[in-house]
Design a protein around this nucleic acid. Sequence first.
DNA 1: CTTGTTATTGAAAACCATTTTCATGTGCAA
DNA 2: TTGCACATGAAAATGGTTTTCAATAACAAG
Lengths: 167, 167
Amino acid sequence: MKMVFNNKRSFMKSEFEQGHHWCRHRVKGCGFRMTIGREAVLDVLSRTEDHLSAEDIYMLVHETYPAIGLTSVYRTLDMLVNIGLVYKFDFGDGRARFELAEGPKGKDHHHHLVCTGCGRIVNYRDFIDEEVALLKKTEEGLSKKYNFAITNHLIQFYGLCEGCRKK
Amino acid sequence: MKMVFNNKRSFMKSEFEQGHHWCRHRVKGCGFRMTIGREAVLDVLSRTEDHLSAEDIYMLVHETYPAIGLTSVYRTLDMLVNIGLVYKFDFGDGRARFELAEGPKGKDHHHHLVCTGCGRIVNYRDFIDEEVALLKKTEEGLSKKYNFAITNHLIQFYGLCEGCRKK
DNA sequence: CTTGTTATTGAAAACCATTTTCATGTGCAA
DNA sequence: TTGCACATGAAAATGGTTTTCAATAACAAG
Ligand SMILES: [Mn+2]
Ligand SMILES: [Mn+2]
Ligand SMILES: [Zn+2]
Ligand SMILES: [Zn+2]
């Protein structure tokens, strides 16, 4: 009994808990309970730059918290996407991929470069200044013209990486 | 026998056959046979601005060519996407959506405005001049920096349309 | 117009990521 | 500590898409 409790504590003592404490507040602020599974999913997402599938996340969480079920991973991801803490992508390989949305400082926003040969995905953050300005300008133009309240955008470039081109 | 043949001819006599003849050449040029089903799928796609699912297309083709099967629609779409005649999109409703790629003049390229409330999709063609220039510039920068041969891009803005905002 | 070769097809079954169901467990406000 | 609404896991269901396979049709050659 005590062992189990200790396991839980040691599991929760993670870099995530220290560094991304605000995520928990957001979850609770939206009226959801902060469970071990939800924390573990956020923890996995906060430790990687990759674009993990639900099953990827399930397997990674499973390493430190074997009691979790795949169903809960799906449910947690769905909730996190709904409250805006996580982005959900489709890169065309038949399964959804997830990444943590930018923190409160919003400094981590990026776009994607996708290799249609091997599926490799590059996170691309080095926007030109013009690019940021134009994006905002375009959003304003579209908002006015089509009467949309624009909240987000998706920008992906497709092509062949060096390795895939040499074949 | 003659009736059947006449049916085929009358089916093929469509605005599409006159206006989008080049599509057929592209299909045959890639080593594929031009069948009635394939022609009918291209015909449906060429007549709409909408973003049809495979089943939408199946039902529309079925009206003039009831012999077609859903399987063939999927296979045809897959082939058309592979040779670049059709674009495949995921707007997050669990089914793929398709639209005819721009013609040889390439004047029909557009981006999308997606309402996350009702799923409405606006085709948005009125690019600012800067936008086009910057897009090209960005592609060049990315090509060089990450050694990618960029062939395409996907740009979508998400938000709430007027109707969905009033609720 | 035939014919022969093969790509193509439709129906049915398989696939597989995701969702639903439902009985059990747990976070947390009181 | 307690109660209960919310959250969970296992198993089954769902549903869009793909695979299988025997039958068919496109089309190049004659
Ligand atoms: Mn990313
Ligand atoms: Mn469109
Ligand atoms: Zn590649
Ligand atoms: Zn709407």
